[in-house]
Each structure stands twice: as structure tokens, then as C-alpha cells.
Amino acid sequence: MIILLVEDDTVLATHSIDFLAQEGIEVDYASTVRQAKAISKQQTYDAIVLDINLPDGDGLSLAKLWQNQRQEPILFLSARDALDDKLKAFSLGALDYLTKPFALPELAVRIKLLANKNNPQPTKQFNLDSLQVDLDARIITRGERIIVLSPQQWQLLAMLIKHYPNPVSKDTIINEIWPQQDSNNNMYKSLITRLRSNLTQADEPPLLHTLKKQGVALRKQHD
């Protein structure tokens, strides 16, 4: 996967590029409108991540220029969080809008979602109630909500999916998550609690259940 990142904050851009590389996302980078126009002539992208405030123009004008020229999905980055700014971005063809500051894992997930919408590929999927997990791209959604997990939470979720609908014992989880480390009951409980709170919010039915003397399992409430 390759994207174009147009962002004048070089520190943010560097951190983003390094993190996205770890997620398997290659990045072409431009810090100005002029650079973005020049670079984009040479490449078709899976997605474009576009800052609104740029030193020689703005991302909204660039998106308007590209509206009838390019087919890539656009994700806008901006410190502007007013509804009017978001509506203007969407009117120019943006499919997503992420306000600054943001977490890099969330940026990666949103890029993958955009790229998959634009160029869907067969993937390994797990569905339970309204929870959807793309195991290849590591994209997790529940309804309209994007779920961002830490590496340990993802590792635990993958274990639970692998064994679904059977429970995974406490000892198995500890040996898999902390194989070379001293662990304790508080670390285990904290990991379960954090994953449970990320998977289920507000009025959503719980999906992660603790089963007495068996461990934890992914199940619908009535299973």
C-alpha cells in the first residue's frame, strides 16, 4: 500500500511516516501544495492524507483541483474542528476527517479503511454481533466506531478469535503475552479490562466474558 502525505509539520510527518512504515504503508511525502502537485503526477495512490493549512495554499483548494482529476480517497488532517470546515472538506470529496492532535494507530487504521473501500481485497474476517475484525489489515470496527488497540490487546484479541467460541485460560494468555517476563495477576486483569472496555462501550452488548475456572472468551451475551 502506498499513500501520499501532504503535511507541513515536518516533525509530525516524520513520526507518521515511521509509524506507517511499521504498519506496511509506504509514504510519498510533500510539505507544500507545489510539491504535492509535482509528486502526485508520477503516482497513483491507495489514499491521500491532506493537511488543510499549508504554507503556499490550503488542502481544501488542492482537493478541489483534484476533485475531477484523481480517484484516490482523501483523508483530511486539521486542527480545525468546526462543523463548517468538516462539511466543506466532505463536499470536496473527502471520505474522512481527522482532527489534530491524533493517535498514530488511529491514523493507520483510518488509512487502511479508506484504501480497502477504494480497492477491496479478500481478507480474513471475524464478525461477532456488530464487531468486525479484519485480521490481515488489523482493522477493528464496531458499528460506526473505529477501535484502536495496543499491541498486547491486539495479541489477546487474536488469541480469542483463534479459539472462538471456546475460552482461553489465564495461564495460556500469560504465557503468550509475557513469555519472557515476570507477570502478575494485576497485569492480567488490567489487560482484560482494557480490551473489554475498548470492545464494548455505552449501550453495546458485552462480547468479552470471564468464565469461572475456564478463562475468557468472545461470545454474544446470550451464548
Rank of each mutant, 00 (worst) to 15 (best):
Q132W: 12
E7W: 03
L218G: 02
D182P: 11
R138A: 10
L104E: 07
A94W: 10
K170G: 04
V148Y: 14
L107P: 09
P122W: 10
W178L: 05
A108K: 05
R145M: 09
S31A: 13
W154L: 13
S31Q: 00
L160Q: 03
I174R: 13
L20K: 02
N185H: 11
V49G: 08
K124V: 13
L77K: 09
P55Q: 11
K189N: 03
K37A: 11
T172N: 09
A158Y: 04
L128S: 04
P205W: 01
V216N: 05
L149N: 07
D171V: 12
N184W: 09
S190G: 08
A94Y: 07
L114D: 10
G215R: 00
T193W: 02
N53L: 15
D182T: 10
L107G: 07
Y45N: 00
P151L: 08
T172I: 10
G215C: 09
T141P: 01
V109W: 05
L113P: 11
Q201D: 05
P73H: 12
Q180R: 12
A217D: 06
G93D: 08
I139P: 00
I147P: 05
V49W: 01
F102L: 14
A202G: 04
L62S: 01
G24N: 02
A47D: 00
Q43L: 06
L75T: 02
S197A: 14
L20R: 09
L104G: 01
D56S: 05
W154R: 13
Q67G: 08
V109I: 14
N127H: 15
I25G: 15
I140E: 06
D51C: 11
L195P: 11
D84Q: 15
L98V: 06
G59F: 10
K86I: 14
P167M: 01
D129E: 07
A202Y: 04
K64N: 07
K86M: 15
D136G: 03
D134E: 08
N184I: 01
S183P: 13
T141E: 12
E176W: 12
G59V: 11
D223V: 02
P120Y: 00
S190Y: 02
L156G: 00
D182R: 15
N68H: 01
D56G: 00
L199E: 02
S150Q: 15
S40Y: 02
L83T: 03
R196S: 13
S31D: 10
